[in-house]
């Protein structure tokens, strides 16, 4: 067959190009543009090359924020993933009880992020908050605005309360999709509950758990509204995570150049982590065993 000389089919791709350009490429290029210039005013700018990148990469406060961020995401995942799976395993499998528990578990997911922060501020207030007052009533001094450790505990509690349901729902969906025959076969083979979980349920949930893990990693790594509302990044800098620090630079100090360079690095870190996590999970247990 001859090739078409002027293939008009290419015009059909234009709408997608325009859409992607406006939604992703142009904003991204704007950030790239900022990241290589020093902007003094609307008509007053200077090309600085990689200077902002160097500055940002050697910023110790950013290193601290990154460390905190990794610790936070890691801890949150370590708690949320097993807890979510455990909840999914304990949920009723059918009937009205199943529907009811699904709705109840999904409730925290429906609340806007900043409202979550507000709820927890009130909930943990040492004077009038249900939790805060109760803990203080038991003789433990609790005030997350004063103690870095308690601020962390409060934030983690809030994050776990807010997002474990997502993991639980995904895990539940994964569990429900396992054909009954697997459980029947496991029974016949005399498998214990643990063996059934380890050899059937967990491998069969791998797909949804990978998604859950990636979603939870990205979301917790980009966390902003909750610590902003609850602690404002404090006390001190103890809960200043990457995005809070980023906003401080961009909005607080109006250093657009470093903020843009920071954004790009931030973005790359997230991509890198997601890619590696995905690769690891994809290959878990897939290697051919030879002996």
């Amino acid at each position: 067959m001859d090739k078409w000389k002027d293939n008009k089919a290419w015009f059909l791709v234009i709408p997608v190009f325009i859409l992607v350009a406006f939604s992703a490429i142009i904003p991204l290029m704007t950030v790239v543009n900022y990241s290589v210039q020093d902007i003094f005013g609307p008509d007053n700018r200077l090309f600085v090359g990689t200077e902002w990148f160097k500055e940002v990469l050697s910023d110790t406060r950013l290193h601290d924020a990154l460390g905190r961020q990794l610790l936070f995401s890691g801890l949150v995942l370590l708690i949320e993933m097993p807890l979510g799976i455990l909840i999914a395993l304990m949920m009723p499998k059918k009937g009205w009880a199943s529907s009811l528990s699904l709705v109840l578990i999904a409730l925290p997911l429906l609340i806007p992020w900043n409202v979550i922060g507000t709820i927890w501020i009130i909930f943990t207030r040492p004077d009038i908050g249900l939790l805060g007052a109760a803990i203080n009533g038991m003789g433990v001094a609790f005030d997350h605005t004063n103690s870095a450790g308690q601020a962390w505990i409060t934030l983690m509690l809030m994050e776990v309360w807010h997002w474990t349901p997502l993991v639980a729902l995904l895990a539940f969906a994964g569990l429900r999709s396992i054909p009954e025959a697997y459980f029947q076969a496991a029974k016949i083979d005399g498998a214990s509950t643990w063996a059934t979980f380890w050899y059937i349920q967990l491998p069969k949930m791998r797909g949804v758990l990978t998604i859950a893990l990636l979603l939870r990693f990205m979301d917790s790594f980009l966390i902003y509204a909750e610590p902003f509302v609850l602690t404002g990044g404090g006390p001190g800098n103890s809960t200043t995570f990457l995005s809070i620090y980023l906003v401080k630079i961009a909005v607080g100090q109006f250093d657009l150049g470093p903020a843009a360079a920071f954004s790009l690095i931030y973005n790359l870190i997230v991509l890198l982590f997601c890619f590696s996590l995905y690769q690891v999970l994809l290959n878990v247990g897939k290697g051919e065993k030879t002996s």
Partner: peptide
């Protein structure tokens, strides 16, 4: 009793 099901039921992660 042993049972063989309509669809092969295997422990995927095992040899």
């Amino acid at each position: 009793i042993a049972q063989v099901f309509q669809f092969p039921v295997l422990y995927d992660t095992m040899t």
